[in-house]
């Protein structure tokens, strides 16, 4: 059975792969394929955020009583990432390669430093305080 860290870290890597695919297609100006790949990337990333915001963070907050701590910072960074994803979508609609790659570059660094914080700090804390199989099951059910 997965730990929370393993389960969600795997999802991070999947989203990274999906983003890399979109980035490559946009660079090569293969717009139709890029739109499709972007949809997959966006849906997977937003689903991952939802799993954290709807299941993991409330469970963690409920168990530890820490409401204004790391989970709040993570929510804020999710909001920043959502905004950048939306701007990437707009650039893709306009077939604006330069704008897409420019927003994507900022997104990528934001999301990687965000992932680092989750993987190094938050997830191990969650594994320590929560029943991992139960939480993973709830996230899977979403």
């Amino acid at each position: 059975m997965f730990s929370i860290t393993e389960y969600l870290t795997d999802e991070h890597r999947e989203c990274d792969e999906l983003y890399a695919k979109v980035e490559r297609l946009v660079s090569e100006e293969r717009w139709q394929e890029a739109v499709k790949a972007f949809g997959e990337f966006r849906d997977e990333t937003l689903r991952h955020f939802q799993k954290e915001e709807d299941v993991l963070f409330p469970e963690f907050e409920g168990r530890t009583g820490i409401v204004m701590g790391p989970t709040q910072v993570m929510r804020m960074e999710h909001a920043q990432a959502r905004e950048l994803i939306s701007r990437m979508g707009e650039a893709l609609e306009k077939k604006d390669k330069r704008a897409f790659l420019s927003v994507g570059e900022t997104f990528m660094i934001l999301i990687q430093q965000h992932n680092m914080k989750e993987e190094q700090i938050l997830y191990p804390m969650c594994d320590q305080h929560l029943d991992a199989p139960e939480v993973v099951q709830k996230m899977e059910a979403l």
Binding site: P70, V73, M125
Partner: peptide
Amino acid sequence: MRGLSLLQ
């Protein structure tokens, strides 16, 4: 707690 450093 360790994770509070995220705010700092």
